[in-house]
Design a protein around this nucleic acid. Structure first.
Lengths: 237, 237, 237, 237
DNA sequence: TATGAATGAGTCTTCATTCAT
DNA sequence: CATGAATGAAGACTCATTCAT
């Protein structure tokens, strides 16, 4: 209960000596900021592996080698931890994404190709990204989905849609595509296989399909479709 | 986890005898098998909405209008409920999928097109499928992923890979594609947007992108790629 | 975390046989409503002894010989338990209180005397009442204070004030008294000593001042004041 | 306990390094004794507002603008802080109280009147006193109750009882009163309304009943009782 | 003098599961 | 066939306290 402030029966429970230091690094200093980073990374790793909702703070603490109370010490609440993750790790990922549209303003195919390659590179560099994107960003009810929208808005998406629609009107892009789906398709073609392959886990067996293959496959699909490609053109000619 | 925000479901009527007398008719028979079906469907709906791990048996019972103990009565354990779901709902979905490869043996493009359309149709008919596929089948650590593999194996996939590779050798399919990724790409292009659009929820406002658009977009992408298409080329010529 | 619905890592933790029945009455039936009553009474006893905020649900459960989870089974949350207490135990206490004003409409002194005696009787019959009144009703920030106001409102108080003010105008009541304080004074003169004396605890040593003395003292004070009383009048005469 | 409602204090700035850099000046010296006094006063204010058991050391530190560790630095443990409060703030309040009995040795009515006025004055000067008296001194199980008894004993009370009893034997005081209750009655008539009125809180809206009214009411009640007073009687004659 | 870091214990709450009826 | 009662385990969060710096 405790309308404004907690703690009960406190008088009853004597302080207790609690002499035996048990877990974690009892002392020997790690440095505050360092510990915080360690926790953030542990959280990202576990969130990617198990999903956000299904990862307990205790699990994160264990992964980082500290007590669960430490997680609260640094982030106060689970929600705030997630907010930190979004602000410090997710939001920065978007950086420079818009530039691609600007640079390749007149060549949509190369723009989308660059975008696909960028996604793959991101997924390789930040292995937690693809799984989290799949599970907690695009899934309805995904934890990050709502928060990202709150924090970041739809601006970026809208811009992309506009650019795509323009290209279509100019006859530079397959007019049968749905502007609002293309972006997602690109991410799906790249991040989905990255999320599935366990390559980002240290202990996994050698994966059959590597980052290279994923990038090549995605680019091939978006540039040429599944058909036999240039050959077909030649034949047509 | 469980933030301090009051759980919506809890408010609706908790397990205890507390206030609301609880739903369902206490007696008056519904018929065993019927009840079982009702529970399975409630489970699918909730699993799709919230993810499997984040749906409690109590929530399922509430959704179906019975007591939590009933769920145990019919399925014994949580794990067994999931197994039932896989056997009775997921596995059947695969049925007839192989036929497409046979029917379109000599025309891979139309085969893949048919496949894409099939996925969209499946997603439309079984609205729980796309979200569950995204969250719990392809996501690493997804609950269904491991079990599906145990129960179903990779046979199907292997067969598809073989067919695709053959088409590539025969020059009928873009050779730059990765056989083991193509199938997943197809599903991604169709199920991903289906999972994201809330169209499967009855109470959602009219979505901007409907099933039609998703199918058309996917087909356009796989058949022609993002480029302006052969027609444009011809015109250019 | 868990936006709408809880439970995490559940998959990881196997059910476990939990063979050893430990506390409580493992079985042997107590009957639902009976248990509920038992819990309410345990709660009242502890709340009276330690205050509401400082009594943990665990303590209540222990007092009633059940697991803490049982408390939630019957009351869902702490707040709801308190609401039940208010509705089922506190509110009924007020019953018939207004009648006193009606019965003694023309004799304020006997009305207030009756009121004082009524308070003492209430405190004797429901030993949890005086301590709870002192700690959680009149104390600012007291848990019951706010809730009682929400549920019951000030109606009763207002009525009493009006009656008192009328008596004063009619010259039947000491005009120097403050109408809005008189009611509280009466309760203070009766419930305060009842709250302090531990007589309501079974294990206390024989108290020096019993219920009788408290009632007599309060009545004497309000009817005659501290002065030597009738004697003075006689002398005056 | 601690209901799900977000603790107001927590929002203000939790212990962790989380977001808000924390209050106070990190360095720049305030002077030890000064700091100690500030803490004592913060503690008194919060204890009065929320009760002793329900005020965390962290809340006190925050109120005083220092780190929670500082509280320990100055007082070692929670219990010792309370002891300091008793010794330095509560015990001194008693000072000079006995003199009243001596001064008005032969006029009990004016002695008790003076006493009542003294209580009101104390409550006005030390606004933390009435709430703490109600909640933590008179309430059974109140934190201060036991400690006060240990540190101060019943001496004072006994003396008062003796004086009162003597007056009664001498026919100067209403013989129907209970000596051991009179003192408490006096405090109840004065401190109780003082504790209830939020006047001691700076931000409260103008209270209807001020210190003046409380004093007048208490004096009127103890000197004349609730009846219309001797005057009325005389008139009747 | 002062504080950041860290922890163990405790609180409320939820949930899967069991069992007697 | 169905359910109410009950429980153990776990999770998030708070807090008093310690300690090295």
């Amino acid at each position: 209960m405790k309308a404004p402030e907690p703690s009960q029966d406190r008088a009853a429970g004597a302080p207790g000596p609690a002499p035996g230091r048990r877990p974690g690094r009892p002392s020997g200093g790690v440095g505050g900021a360092e510990q915080r980073t360690r926790l953030i990374e542990a959280a990202l790793a576990l969130f990617a592996r198990q999903g956000i909702l299904d990862t307990s703070l205790g699990a994160i603490a264990r992964e980082a080698g500290v007590t669960p109370a430490m997680v609260h010490y640094y982030f106060n609440t689970r929600d705030q931890l997630i907010d930190v993750l979004i602000d410090e790790r997710f939001v920065p990922l978007r950086e420079g994404l818009g530039d691609i549209f600007v640079e390749h303003r007149d060549d949509p195919v190369s723009a989308l190709t660059a975008l696909a390659q960028r996604f793959v590179a991101m997924g390789q560099r930040y292995p937690w990204f693809p799984p989290l994107w799949v599970r907690d960003v695009i899934s309805e009810g995904g934890v990050l989905r709502q928060r990202m929208l709150e924090r970041v808005g739809r601006e970026h998406q809208e811009k992309a849609h506009t650019a795509i629609a323009r290209w279509q009107r100019e006859g530079r892009l397959n007019a049968a595509l749905e502007p609002s789906l293309l972006f997602q398709s690109l991410m799906g073609l790249t991040l989905l296989p990255l999320a599935t392959s366990q390559m980002w886990r240290g202990d996994a067996e050698k994966p059959r399909v590597g980052v290279e293959e994923i990038a090549r496959h995605a680019v091939a699909l978006i540039t040429q479709g599944v058909g036999p490609g240039p050959v077909a053109h030649i034949e047509k000619d």
